[in-house]
Design a protein around this nucleic acid. Sequence first.
DNA 1: CAGTGGTCTAGACCACGTG
DNA 2: ACGTGGTCTAGACCACTGC
Lengths: 256, 256
Amino acid sequence: MSDTPSTDRGALPDRSAGSAAFSPLYQQIKGLLLQSLDRGEWKPGEAIPSELELAARFQVSQGTVRKAIDELAAENLLIRRQGKGTFVATHHEAKVRFRFLRLTPDDGKPVASGSRILDCRRVKAPADVAALLELRSAEAVVNLRRVLSFDQAPTILDDIWLPGAVFRGLTAESLARYRGPLYALFETEFGVSMVRADEKIKAVPASPEQAELLQVETGSALLQVERVSFTYGDRPMEVRRGVYVTERFHYRNSLN
Amino acid sequence: MSDTPSTDRGALPDRSAGSAAFSPLYQQIKGLLLQSLDRGEWKPGEAIPSELELAARFQVSQGTVRKAIDELAAENLLIRRQGKGTFVATHHEAKVRFRFLRLTPDDGKPVASGSRILDCRRVKAPADVAALLELRSAEAVVNLRRVLSFDQAPTILDDIWLPGAVFRGLTAESLARYRGPLYALFETEFGVSMVRADEKIKAVPASPEQAELLQVETGSALLQVERVSFTYGDRPMEVRRGVYVTERFHYRNSLN
DNA sequence: CAGTGGTCTAGACCACGTG
DNA sequence: ACGTGGTCTAGACCACTGC
């Protein structure tokens, strides 16, 4: 099996001629790794095979695998740990959590948090939610409403929409029993890994209902955050509309 | 000059023994490149020397220089252009602008923007601003206030603080004549490149003065953004407190 | 055509974590 | 001692840009 440069690479397309749609080898490897992640071949928190193993599997050099993994690590899908291996990112870790929870106390002191489920129902998707989730109109979705409290003070009111086909069996009871971040639950119970999210933020006056639930005055200024979260392959898997009380908290962001 | 692995590397410290503070070669190269950028050896918009030239200058392989540049490019300090070279990032480009201007129209249609300078004075730094800019208390700062309008509608009210020692000669008149983003002006007139910024966001009710300037009702909800901007080496160079009208605009953000 | 960054390889050695 | 990822090198070839 002594190689020549044009050895067969199995699933990989031939690249010897300047093909019309040129894609670097490491990008193709990255795609294959993404497929494996999506397929659940390696679960969140687990180690993926070593670089040498992957290089052998794909019939490329270690350096090429390395570059593919580098990009996935830069996107926070994988986490490299020197001496130990490369691991699938998981929301069962404080670090990942803070990537998605941007509201932090003004004084920086850590707070105790609690969640109260208001509501969890299966309904037909409203048109706007269906569009954002790329579902057919009126397809089934799960609608979840909750209040998050920090140091006993109600601070976040969330209105969450999930594709019904994927999240069947999600009930208010199962949620009430669960402690920890929602996205961690989604991983372990439904095999859905949230990988990226887009947010649109506005300042809005509190509606009477919001004011009541968050124990603020009607009309007081709230931070409104509309989030669409994506799994592997940029598939939208959650729409989340939240309003935040920013009296003693702020939304932090870094511009790079 | 045929090399042996332990050839002298000029300015670079000897790494042959397992040194106490181990730092990879490419990190040291990155540091040297950063110094050159900070010193202004290569100006924003200009090309830096080719990878091979830099490799020769620093007496390392092209691959090592490449990795240093890769990191600087990932941090948006440098921009690689295949076939042309590697360039110093500049705010004289639409792309860079949108990294720092996160307010966008809800309907996505582009808007005409205009700036009105309210005020530009040299004053003694308030304690909080001095702390954020890492200045001694009561040191001189420039305080600049302006209103940005989108499609003729006043939308952003900014209160900006700059270190007086660096921004001497910045006046309301020079600003009034200038068209374009502030950060581009800072680059060409004062040699200050903004590279990164941290923001803290809240929802607040409009004060009577803010309401008047932004033509909204007193007490209506505004998005409040406190930004600290940094140059090379994470040196704070601007404090900017803005309030945004988010009636027809939103602050967009991506969580990765 | 020459020069730039981009890809790919192969191999040596280092630092880290675990037995 | 071993296996992992991390660094560094040298060299070949590819793709893009501009003269």
